[in-house]
Computed example of a mutant assay.
Amino acid sequence: MRRAVLVLLSALIGALAAPAIRAAPHGGSSGCREVTFEEARYTVCRIDMRTHELRLFLRGPDGSPFGSLSRFLGSPMGRGVAMAMNAGMYHEDLSPVGLYVEDGRELKHLNRARGPGNFHMKPNGVFFVAGGRAGVLETDAFARRRPKATLATQSGPMLVIDGKLHPRFSDEGPSRKYRNGVGVSDGSAAIFAISDEPVSFGAFARLFRDALGCRNALFLDGSVSSLHAADLGRTDISLKPIGPIIAALRR
């Protein structure tokens, strides 16, 4: 059963009358495709940094957080977007938990604190764009190098670190959720992936390392994982609000 149907069933069970996917507005090529890896289904979007610009969005023209892909895409900022995805963990007020750099402005500082939950499952990390190239660095490495990022979002845990899986992942852990994340190989492209069925951290990390060739990859979030892909005519509707949004626009 496809994820759209599963989410719709969840919505009905929760007495929420909202479709899981609506028709996508037009946009440039999103470079997205559906793949199967280890018998699980995913959608993968390869964003070429030479032909697309990545941008982060949190608040709309009225100053309030977008909270959903559909509201973002319906705003002036969402016009012509090829791909969009929720971009990291956030507080109840939808503000980012960790480092957040939007249009070259650091709106939230790097978070190196200890704490509970996935964000604090060390090592966590940062996805960023600097000098027109995409990167993923473990948080301490990012703090040491301090690249001049025009875009950055911090989340956790890291999925792949220099070709190795996060040390706390088992091959098949007990937690199965919809998950989304981002990885890089050589910096010329950012590779975003979302699971179309519940998967473990281990399986999701192996997707990035073994199927997508990413030496470094970062978990963005689970359960609220949502994707807009213009090529696929897909825009997910999360049953819960989302925080920061990352979007690809054709240059």
Score class of each variant (00 low, 15 high):
A190C: 07
S185F: 06
A141G: 08
K164T: 14
G163Q: 11
T139E: 14
Y178G: 11
S185P: 01
A141C: 07
E138G: 02
V136P: 00
V184Q: 08
V184R: 03
R145Q: 11
L159V: 03
T150V: 15
A149S: 08
P174C: 10
G156K: 07
R176Y: 13
F169L: 08
S175Y: 12
L165N: 01
H166M: 08
D171S: 15
S185T: 12
Q154A: 08
V182C: 06
S170T: 15
T150Q: 09
R179V: 08
S170R: 14
V184F: 01
N180D: 10
G183C: 03
R146H: 06
D140H: 10
S185E: 14
P147M: 01
F142L: 03
S188P: 00
A149G: 08
V160P: 04
R168K: 14
S175I: 15
T150I: 14
G156T: 09
K177N: 14
D186W: 04
V184P: 03
L151T: 10
L151Y: 08
R144W: 09
G187S: 08
A143I: 05
V182S: 03
V160M: 05
N180F: 06
P167Y: 13
I161G: 05
N180I: 09
Q154K: 06
T153N: 10
P174V: 11
L137K: 09
A143D: 14
K148Q: 11
L159I: 04
G181F: 00
N180L: 07
P167S: 09
P157G: 07
R145E: 15
R179T: 08
R146D: 06
L137N: 00
R145W: 08
S175P: 04
S170V: 14
G181R: 04
A143L: 10
A141R: 15
R144P: 02
P147R: 03
T150N: 09
A141L: 11
K148G: 06
D171E: 15
R176P: 02
